[in-house]
Design a protein around this nucleic acid. Structure first.
Lengths: 342, 342
DNA sequence: CTGAAAGCGCTTACAG
DNA sequence: CTGAAAGCGCTTACAG
C-alpha cells in the first residue's frame, strides 16, 4: 500500500486541496502566505501516510526529469569508472540522477542510446562520443537537449567540450623520452584514432620526435582486441626494420596489455624498452619498474563539464557554447622511462 | 521543435485518432486488425516528423518506467565497475535503463538514494547493501519495488540475494596457504566487517587455521582510510608479539594498498611475507611477484540477479524469494603465495 | 490564504 | 477497424 499514497490522499487527510499540499511540499508556502500551522498539518500527514511524491508525474507536468545521461565507451574502464563516480557526486548534490551507458565505441549504439535517453526526457547529456562528425550531436543539442562533450571534442564548433590537455600531455611525454636519450618510439594507438583525445596525444608526441629528426612509428590496435593485437604487434618486433627503443601506449587499457606482454616475455624495462602511457592508474606506482604516465584531472574535468551543463539546463540557452575547454594534465615520471638516474 | 512532436501531431498528420497511432506504435496493430496500409501511413508520419514517444508520459500512464536502480558502495571500485557494466548490458538488452548510485558504505546515504530511486518509480532495485538489518529493505520489497541483493546478503530471509561463494573462497585461500607451509596469517578486513561478503571470507579463512591450531590475527581498516590504515597496521608489525608470515587482504582495494606498502618497503613476497586476496584484477598477473587472488564470476552473478529481478518485476510477486544464491568462485594461485615451487 | 480546473503526453477500456 | 473519453499524479495559472 505504501507507494500508492497520492497527493489527494494527503489532501483529504488534512482537509485541504491538493494545490495547497503541493505548494507546501514545494516550499512555496511562504510565497503564498500559507500559515505555519497548515504547513505542519501537511507535514504530519505526509509523515503518517509515508507519502513519496511520484517523480514521473511531476516530470510530465514540469517537463523536467532531474535526470542526466552519461554516455561513455565503457563504464568498466577504470578511467570512465572514476569519471562516472565524480560525475555522480556532482549530480546527486544537485538532485540529479544519472543514467550511465556504454557504447563500446560503436557510433550506431551511441546514437540509439542517446535517442533512448532523450525519449526518457533527460534534462541533459554528457557524452564521450565516438562520432567523427558534429552534425548529429549538434541536432540533439539544438533540438532541446543540452549536451556537453567530455574527454573528447569534435572540433572547436558549436558544442561545448571539456577535455584533458592531450596534445600537451603527448608532447611532455615525448620530450621526457628525448631527454632520457630515447630515440625511436613506437606509438601504440587505437583503431579509433580519429577520436580527438587519442589523435592529439599522438600528434603532440610525434611532433617532438619529428622536430628532432628521429624515426618513429605509429601502429593501431582494435578496441575489441587490444590484448591480442598488442601481442601480435610486439611479437615480431625484433625482426622488423624499425626497431623501437621505447613504447607509448595511448591509454590505460593498451598500457596494461603492453605490461602483460613485457612481463611475460621478461623484457627489461626501461633498458631494453622504455614505456610511457596515458591515464595514470594506482598500480603503476606499485609495479617494478613503476610506470611513467600522464594523469588526467578527472575531478576537474567533471566539475567543469557539470557546471557548463547545469548552466545550459537552467538557462535553456542551448545555443551558447564554451568551445573546447582544456584542463591541464600532469606527467608522473617513474622508472619505466628513466635511463639516466636523476 | 523536434522533441515537441506528440502523438496528436502525428494523428492529425495522418488523419486518424491518437488511439490508432498508439496502437500501431505499440505493435498492437495486428491484434486490433489495423490495416497494413494504415500502419504504413503512421510510420511515414512518425518518420517525417521525427516523432519520439515521451517515455515519461508513458510511464505515468502504465506505471512502469523500464528503469532499474543499481546501488553499490562505489562505482569507481573496479569490482563494481565491472559489475555495473555486465548489468547494464543485460538491462539494455531488455529495454531497461539503469541508474547507478554509490553509497560509500553509508547506511543513511543508501536509504536516501533508494528512496529517491523509488520516487523515480524504478521498476526494480539491485543493491549491494551496507545495512546489517533486513527490515528496512524488506519493507521496500514488500512496498511494491522488487529488490534483489547482490554481492552481499542479509541472511537467508525474505530477500533474494546473489553472491559469490565467499566462505568457500576464504577457505580455499587458507588451505592453499597451509599447504604452502604458511602458519600465521594476518587478515586485513574492513571496519564494515558485518557485511556478509567480508565476514564470510574471513570466517572461511579463519576456520582453516583454527582447525590446524595455528595462530592468526584479524585486523580492520576503515573504508575511507584504507591506505593509511594499512600503512599503520603493517608499519609496527615486527615489533608486535604476533608476527604474521602471510597476509590476507579481503578485497582488491586493500590488496592494492598492501602491495603499495610492500613495494615501498621492499618486502620480499612471498618469502618474507606471503599474500593472498579477494577480487582478481588484471594487474595481479602482471606484477612481480604475481598475486594469488579469488576471482568472482561477475557475469554470472549479474545474469542470475537480473533474471531473478526480471521475474519479480514481470510477475509482480515480490513476496517470492529465491533465498541466497551462491555462485562458485575460482582461486587463481600465483607467485605471491608459493613457497614451494610446484 | 485557499480551491477548482486545466493539462503535461501517453494508454486503455469501452463503444460503435 | 476506428475514435471519444477517462485517467495516471502531479503543478500551475486563475479566481476568489
Amino acid at each position: 500500500m505504501a507507494g500508492r499514497v497520492t497527493l489527494d490522499d494527503i489532501a483529504q487527510r488534512v482537509g485541504v486541496s491538493k494545490t495547497l499540499v503541493s505548494l507546501v511540499l514545494n516550499g512555496k508556502a511562504e510565497r503564498y502566505g500559507i500559515s505555519k500551522q497548515t504547513c505542519d498539518r501537511v507535514f504530519v500527514a505526509v509523515h503518517e501516510l509515508n507519502y513519496r511524491p511520484n517523480q514521473t508525474a511531476r516530470s510530465l507536468r514540469t517537463g523536467k526529469t532531474r535526470t542526466i545521461g552519461l554516455v561513455v565507451s565503457d563504464i568498466s574502464n577504470a578511467f570512465y569508472a572514476n569519471l562516472a563516480r565524480e560525475f555522480e557526486d556532482l549530480a546527486t548534490a544537485q538532485g540529479y540522477s544519472v543514467f550511465i551507458c556504454s557504447t563500446d565505441e560503436d557510433v550506431e549504439k551511441e546514437k540509439s542510446l542517446i535517442t533512448m535517453l532523450r525519449n526518457r526526457q533527460v534534462d541533459g547529456l554528457v557524452v564521450s562520443s565516438s562520432q567523427d562528425k558534429t552534425d548529429w550531436l549538434n541536432a540533439i543539442n539544438d533540438g532541446g537537449t543540452p549536451l556537453v562533450l567530455i574527454d573528447r571534442h569534435l572540433g572547436n564548433n558549436t558544442l561545448s567540450a571539456v577535455v584533458g590537455a592531450n596534445r600537451k600531455g603527448g608532447r611532455m611525454l615525448a620530450r621526457h623520452l628525448v631527454e632520457q636519450g630515447f630515440q625511436n618510439p613506437l606509438v601504440i594507438g587505437l583503431s579509433t584514432n580519429h577520436i580527438s583525445s587519442v589523435a592529439e596525444r599522438i600528434e603532440g608526441f610525434v611532433e617532438v620526435f619529428k622536430n628532432e629528426n628521429l624515426e618513429y612509428a605509429v601502429h593501431e590496435v582494435g578496441f575489441h582486441s587490444v590484448q591480442s593485437d598488442v601481442v601480435n604487434l610486439l611479437n615480431g618486433i625484433e625482426a622488423k626494420r624499425f626497431k623501437p627503443d621505447c613504447l607509448f601506449a595511448v591509454n590505460n587499457n593498451i598500457a596494461t596489455a603492453v605490461l602483460q606482454y613485457l612481463s611475460a616475455k621478461n623484457v627489461k624495462v626501461p633498458n631494453e624498452l622504455g614505456l610511457v602511457c596515458f591515464d595514470d592508474m594506482p598500480y603503476f606506482s606499485i609495479i617494478k619498474p613503476s610506470v611513467t604516465a600522464v594523469e588526467q584531472p578527472i575531478a576537474k574535468i567533471c566539475s567543469k563539464a557539470f557546471g557548463i551543463l547545469q548552466e545550459l539546463m537552467e538557462t535553456g540557452s542551448n545555443s551558447k557554447t564554451t568551445g573546447v575547454v582544456e584542463i591541464p594534465v600532469k606527467v608522473k615520471i617513474r622508472e619505466s622511462s628513466m635511463l639516466k638516474s636523476n
